[in-house]
């Protein structure tokens, strides 16, 4: 009988307890659990995730624990895609608050979600970053993401020319 809680060790050497249900929302942990049936006393090492980020991930998992299985979700999205571009707005209020964080945190969660293979969270973070880009001019994007402009004016002129040719095509 597998225990109801799983312990994991994060990159900053903290051991965190999380419920089996939440742990299984991560495909990465899930496959590790399947590989080591019976050895579930041992803490699972997650060397790519810090405790701070993992707590955030667990928060998200707690809120979405009753969502339909991620596989179904993906299928649904695929179907929609055939008709029109995926709806990029974040509908869930809780999610909106969740993504209202510093970019550094968002990027870390995105990396963690990718590593832990939590599909819904990954999609949410991608959506959020995409929304941040939406409708912004290059200058605005630089400002928002703290990017320094290392392109020369000639580079930009050349790019606009090349893009102009393509754009006229459309």
């Amino acid at each position: 009988m597998a225990s109801e809680s799983i312990s994991v060790t994060t990159s900053d050497d903290q051991t965190i307890q999380l419920s089996r249900k939440h742990a299984q929302m991560s495909q990465t942990i899930n496959s590790m659990l399947e590989d080591s049936v019976g050895a579930d006393q041992e803490a699972i090492p997650l060397p790519n995730v810090s405790s701070e980020v993992l707590k955030k991930v667990i928060d998200w998992c707690t809120h979405h624990e009753n969502d339909p299985a991620p596989v179904e979700k993906v299928k649904k999205l695929n179907k929609k895609r055939e008709y029109k571009a995926k709806n990029s707005t974040i509908s869930d209020e809780w999610d909106k608050n969740f993504v209202n964080a510093e970019l550094r945190v968002i990027v870390d969660i995105l990396l963690a979600a990718n590593y832990l293979d939590v599909k819904g969270l990954f999609e949410l973070m991608c959506k959020h970053i995409a929304n941040e880009l939406k409708g912004k001019t290059p200058d605005q994007i630089r400002e928002r993401f703290g990017i320094q402009d290392d392109l020369t004016e000639e580079d930009k002129a050349a790019m606009r020319k090349a893009w102009g040719a393509t754009k006229n095509d459309s």
């Binding site: 990029s88 990718n114 990017i147």
Partner: peptide
């Protein structure tokens, strides 16, 4: 991750603006 993000979530015409921000994005 960047490719996944751009392909699935960003409008292709927006990629133009992104590419003008810096060399890495270009």
């Amino acid at each position: 991750i960047m490719l996944n993000l751009l392909i699935n979530h960003v409008d292709p015409s927006q990629i133009l603006n992104l590419s003008e921000t810096c060399r890495a994005f270009r």
